[in-house]
Amino acid sequence: MMDEIERRPRQRLLYLHARTPSVYSSILGLTQIEPVAGHTVEIMSEDPEWPYKTVHEALVDGWQIVQFPHQQAPYDDGDLDVVGYEFILQKIEVVE
């Protein structure tokens, strides 16, 4: 039963926080979620690997965008909120 589940394609997720809503802008932050039991993410105290410099590089590598950031920048010039613009991407594939 477990083997069957493991051979089924599953959803990998990639959260990319980009400098602007453009897929060509540079990435400021990255979170990768693997559909594997017990998988966790970790804030690193040493330089993490940055597999992509832009969202576009992730697209070239086969990731698909499932949620685009809001295209409208906030108009309030006196307030700042979250860092960057969040793209959520997926790959559906068999994960070893």
Partner: peptide, 25 residues
């Protein structure tokens, strides 16, 4: 995360961030 001190961001909205370029351990 230097430079974020003037941001007004509910902590729940940071839940999808892990490593951010410029973070300082």
């Amino acid at each position: 995360l230097p430079g974020t001190q003037f941001r007004n961001a509910p902590t729940d909205r940071m839940a999808t961030y892990t490593n951010v370029k410029g973070q300082v351990p």
